[in-house]
C-alpha cells in the first residue's frame, strides 16, 4: 500500500479544509503502525516547507473517549509551530468543524526518552505547567473515525493556545485542578485534571513511552498537551469561550470567521 499517497491526500484535506471519507472505508488492512507512519509522512510535508516541530499532543486520554473508539490506550500527534495561536483568538477560516477542549500543557527543560519512564522522570525534566486550550478538527465527515483514521489524521490536531502565565508543577495537585468552560457566559463543561488518565503526569509518561516505539523523544523546549479535561465543544463565529483553571487563571478565547 502506498502510505505516502495517503499522507499526501490527508495533507491536501488538512490544508484546504475539505472533509474526506474515512480511510478505513477505502483501504483494507491499514494497521495502527501504518497510521502512525502516514501521520509522520504527512507532518514531514509541513516540516519540509519550513514548519517546526514544537511538541506532541495526547488524545483519547479518558476512559469514555477510549471506549467510543474501542481502544484501551491513548494516541498522540505532532504539534507544529504553525498550529500555535499567538493570541487567544481563533479564526474559523481553514477549519472544518472545530471544537475546543481545556488541557494542561507541560513544558520541558530536559530530554525525555525511553519505554521505562516514570512520573518522577517527568517531574525532573519539567520546567513548568501551563493552562491551554486545544482546537481539534477532524478532517473526516461528521467527526466520525476509527482509531486508524484518527491517528493518520494527526490525532485531529488543528490549533492550540498556551496561557501566558506558567506555573510550578509542584504548587498545585494537577489531578485535582477544577476546570470550568463557559460559552458566552454559560457553563458548558466542567472537569478536573484526573480526567486525564487519572493524573496528567501519566499522560506525559505514556507520550514518552509511545514515542520510544518510533525512535522519537520529548526534546528540551518542547510542549506536551496532555489531553482534554472535559468533552470538547463546537465553536462558532462570535463565540467567547472562557476556561477557568482552579488556581491557574483563565483563558478567554474569541472566535471569528
Amino acid at each position: 500500500m502506498n502510505l505516502q499517497a495517503i499522507a499526501d491526500e490527508l495533507y491536501r484535506h488538512q490544508t484546504s479544509a475539505a472533509e474526506l471519507e474515512k480511510l478505513t472505508l477505502r483501504y483494507e488492512g491499514l494497521s495502527v503502525e501504518d497510521a502512525y507512519e502516514i501521520q509522520q509522512l504527512c507532518m514531514g510535508k509541513y516540516m519540509n516547507e519550513g514548519q517546526k516541530l514544537v511538541g506532541w499532543k495526547m488524545g483519547l486520554t479518558s476512559k469514555a473517549k477510549q471506549q467510543s473508539v474501542g481502544v484501551d490506550e491513548p494516541i498522540f500527534g505532532h504539534l507544529l509551530d504553525g498550529m500555535e495561536l499567538y493570541d487567544p483568538h481563533v479564526s474559523l477560516t481553514g477549519l472544518i468543524h472545530p471544537r475546543v477542549e481545556p488541557e494542561l500543557a507541560f513544558i520541558f527543560k530536559h530530554r525525555l526518552e525511553g519505554d521505562k519512564i516514570l512520573p518522577r522522570d517527568v517531574w525532573l525534566a519539567t520546567e513548568c505547567v501551563v493552562p491551554a486550550v486545544e482546537i481539534i478538527d477532524s478532517r473526516y465527515k461528521n467527526f466520525s473515525f476509527t482509531l486508524v483514521d484518527v491517528v493518520a489524521d494527526n490525532a485531529s490536531s488543528a490549533k492550540f493556545y498556551l496561557a501566558e502565565q506558567a506555573y510550578s508543577p509542584y504548587q498545585i495537585a494537577l489531578d485535582q485542578v477544577g476546570v470550568v468552560m463557559r460559552r458566552n457566559g454559560e457553563v458548558e463543561q466542567t472537569g478536573a485534571g484526573a480526567a486525564v488518565l487519572g493524573h496528567p503526569v501519566r499522560s506525559v509518561v505514556e507520550q514518552v513511552r509511545m514515542l520510544s516505539r518510533i525512535g522519537k523523544a520529548v526534546e528540551p523546549g518542547m510542549v506536551v498537551l496532555t489531553g482534554g479535561i472535559t468533552e470538547a465543544i463546537y465553536i462558532h463565529d462570535g463565540d467567547r469561550i472562557s476556561v477557568s483553571f482552579e488556581g491557574m487563571g483563565e483563558i478567554e478565547l474569541t472566535v471569528s470567521q
Partner: peptide, 11 residues
C-alpha cells in the same frame, strides 16, 4: 479506585 467522573462546582 478508578476515576469515573470529574467535574467542578460551576456545573
Amino acid at each position: 479506585g478508578e476515576v469515573v467522573e470529574t467535574g467542578a462546582g460551576a456545573a
